Simulated scan of single mutants.
Amino acid sequence: MTIAQDVTSQITRLRQHVADLHRELPRNALVVWTAGNVSARVPDADLLVIKPSGVGYDELSADNMVVADLDGNLVDGAYKPSSDTAAHAYVYRHMPHIGGVVHTHSTYATAWSARGEAIPCVLTAMADEFGGEIPVGPFALIGDDSIGRGIVETLSGHRSPAVLMRSHGVFTIGRSARDAVKAAVMCEDVARTVHIARQLGTPLPIEEHHIDALYARYQNVYGQSQPA
């Protein structure tokens, strides 16, 4: 496959960006050993950048990030792509507005997935970031696009950028890879808090109209406006 020069420059930038974002996963205690991955869509090309399979986080660099097409096939790189590449590729094929995908086995969120239970929206931080509960996706085996299908089916029409794939772990999506990493960090944070709250009693649900108002404010007002 011949890659245009302007796309090559995008890939070079994204290889470094994706390598840097992978450091956020162990830094935020979202992964152990070589588990988990971050990918980014290459703009204006049917390509993605993702980590290589089975390579430790301390060894990751821009040079060993790999490029795959949106069918999950290796396009460029000296290593095999992550075993989750087919799932990431399926998401990009079917959710064209998505620019980044993250997968983790973070402890508390994965514990919810092991129970096959959605995380209820009982925190304003959840309303802000997820717009409601964090849903559970179906059980699916690793290796083909079955996980990707489950992600798309669960999150299509849902405000949450995170899904708990049953008995597996967390997948998050975002307009950018950085947004997807943030969603993964926030997912684990609220999963832990809600778990602790349930040890103390029954968490109180937030009314739907309050969730809507909190989500709208956070998505449209919170933070700094972009410069003109």
Rank of each mutant, 00 (worst) to 15 (best):
V122C: 11
T104P: 00
L141S: 14
R149K: 14
I147F: 07
R115P: 00
G100N: 11
E117W: 04
F139D: 10
P120R: 02
E129H: 15
G99F: 01
P96I: 02
G150A: 09
T110P: 11
T124Q: 11
E133I: 11
H88C: 07
H97S: 11
T110M: 13
G77Q: 08
P120A: 05
N73H: 15
H105Y: 07
Y79N: 10
G148A: 10
I147L: 15
I147H: 04
G100E: 04
L123G: 01
Y108F: 15
R149M: 07
V102W: 01
L141P: 14
V75F: 09
A127L: 02
S82P: 05
I98E: 01
Y79A: 06
V102L: 01
T85N: 06
V122S: 02
Y108P: 05
G77F: 06
L74K: 14
A140K: 08
S82M: 12
S83F: 00
A89F: 12
S106I: 04
G99Y: 04
H105Q: 11
G77H: 07
H105I: 01
G99D: 03
N73Y: 14
T85R: 14
F139R: 13
T85L: 09
A109K: 15
D144L: 10
A127W: 03
M126I: 05
P96A: 12
G143H: 09
P81Y: 09
D76G: 07
V102N: 02
L123V: 03
P81L: 06
I142A: 09
H88S: 11
A118F: 01
P120S: 04
I142S: 13
A114E: 04
G99Q: 03
P138H: 13
V152R: 10
V91Y: 02
I119Y: 06
A111S: 05
A78M: 14
A125M: 12
E153Y: 12
A114Q: 10
R149G: 14
G137A: 10
A125V: 13
A78N: 15
A78E: 15
M95N: 00
A109M: 11
V136Q: 06
A78G: 15
V101E: 06
G131R: 03
S146L: 13
I119V: 08
A109R: 05
D145S: 15
V122Y: 03
D144W: 11
H97L: 09
S106F: 00
A127Q: 06
A111G: 14
P96C: 01
P120V: 03
H105M: 04
A87D: 07
R93V: 09
E129Q: 13
S113R: 08
I119T: 02
A127D: 04
R115D: 03
D144A: 13
S113K: 00
F139L: 13
E153L: 10
A78W: 12
E133Y: 09
D128P: 05
H94Q: 10
A127P: 05
P96E: 11
I98A: 01
S146E: 12
Y90T: 03
C121A: 05
V91L: 02
A86E: 02
